[in-house]
Design a protein around this nucleic acid. Structure first.
Lengths: 196, 196
DNA sequence: ACGGCTTGCTCGCGTTTAGATAACATCACT
DNA sequence: AGTGATGTTATCTAAACGCGAGCAAGCCGT
């Protein structure tokens, strides 16, 4: 496990190599992180080497990153990609933290079956992250239980007269409208993910 | 058997780990439960450790919950959800591990701009996980660079005569065909995720 | 080759923060 | 009164983090 500062050093080195094509000097690492002492940087490098994140040779700029040991749960964030334009780089090398992205209490995962939400980008086989809840707001995508029997993933819309509409995102299907007491909300969609 | 307060401490720790992805400090536990003293918290932790609920290492944030459902970066896996049927429960409570799901070497994240892949369930603003690669197979969704200028996310199709087609998943757009030497593959789509 | 420079390494020291430990107070309930 | 759960204060230890001096090895220019 890396401490906060060790993590910062590690990420700085990765970024430096990506940007400059060579490993940083101790003093460059220090400068980048606001450390005025080479000794401190050296201690961090030793810690990283000991834990298998980097390798050092005694030559100048002799740091190598071993990406077998990428820090778990994060991905380097390279930028945006758009049709017709080159990848728009993100300024300072950020990390996308999968853990915090979907973190939250009372959350769980479901696998989606069926195509009722394809037009919302939710396909058969995808995972969805649901946060337990008993109430929702109009427009939320929810897991709703109808008559204590049928659970579905739909956009919800409360309507006048105590009616609730469950709206699929698939133009081949139609919205279903029920009296409010027949529909029980189980959770609200918070995230979605897919593995190819 | 846990006392009322011990139970509260235990639950607080579990929730904290799930939400923050890391164990709390003694002072954070205290703050969360209205205790102004690290000493008390420490006593509770000792009690919990003695009864086998947690494990401690002497490092900072060194609390680990032994219940494996409470590990950072995982979500309880409840089952499948399908239109028209109740949630199909998964037998034994499994965990969905976000870290291993997208793990792999040479991977990075990009944010998608534009709608060229909507019919593949990839929408504007989604994150995609890309694995660096120089070659791909027909049908792979790739990040391709055309003429060293334009980067796009498209399905690739190698055709006879050294031609390469880049096929969007949007019926409003058309496939583009280039001679092979103008198209350079940068990576292959391995995952996709979205936060609501 | 020589000395000066840079670079990396080793070492000792200090500060801050967090965890460990202990002595003691309060309250409820028996 | 006695017991146990709960809370407070104070103190000690160790980790994390930082500074800087000094040393050795390679680089460079006169």
């Amino acid at each position: 496990m890396l401490s906060k500062r060790e993590q910062a050093v590690y990420e700085f080195i990765c970024q430096f190599i990506l940007e400059q094509g060579q490993a940083p000097l101790l003093s460059e690492i220090g400068e980048g992180l606001g450390i005025n002492s080479k000794g401190v940087v050296h201690r961090y490098l030793s810690a990283l080497e000991e834990q298998g994140y980097i390798e050092r040779s005694k030559r100048h700029r002799g740091i190598r990153v071993l990406d077998e040991q990428v820090s778990p749960g994060t991905l380097p964030l390279m930028g945006r990609i758009a049709a017709g334009q080159p990848i728009e780089a993100v300024n300072d090398q950020q990390q996308l933290d999968l853990n915090s992205l979907f973190a939250g209490s009372n959350r769980y995962a479901l696998q989606v079956k069926g195509d009722s939400m394809v037009e919302a980008g939710i396909c058969d086989g995808d995972w969805v992250v649901i946060e337990s809840a008993q109430t929702a707001r109009n427009g939320d995508i929810v897991v709703a239980l109808v008559d204590d029997e049928d659970a579905t993933l739909k956009t919800i819309d409360y309507r006048a007269g105590g009616q609730v509409a469950l709206i699929p995102s698939n133009s081949a299907m139609e919205a279903m409208v029920y009296p409010e007491e027949r529909v029980q909300i189980q959770g609200i969609l918070k995230g979605q993910l897919r593995v190819y």
